[in-house]
Amino acid sequence: MYNKNYYKISFPSRSVNESFARMTISAFCMQLDPTVEQVNDIRTAVSEAVTNCVVHAYPDTIGTIYITATIKDSILKITVKDKGIGISDIQKAMEPMYSTDMHNERAGLGFAVMQAFMDKVKVYSKPGKGTRVVMTKNIERSN
């Protein structure tokens, strides 16, 4: 059966909204009938992407975080976007255990978690313009 749906939200980069973002994606992906583990993987990946926006994209200001999620057949595609400071070296930023914010107890594993829990993670960024993280996961139906 052909299946297509989407949602879009935006909210300020306040850390209290990290849990709100997780709740929205958890609720949205339910229509794919995911396993508990798949829901956990998805909400954890979104939590990491949103936290990156809160901590890194808007370090000294409150900016807007945009989430768009689409479902096409069994593929869930999530885009987390900001208009923050951007990333000059994406490859370096994605290195496990690397963080520009170690004094605030960031482990430098945000992208590693996204990559471990989603099928594909792509990062697009321009310094001064912002960053877009696009993640996909195939939620196969069990029947």
Partner: peptide
């Protein structure tokens, strides 16, 4: 009830 990589930072520190 939920943990992301912030839990790692919490434990390591």
């Amino acid at each position: 009830t939920f943990m992301d990589s912030s839990g790692i930072g919490l434990v390591l520190a």
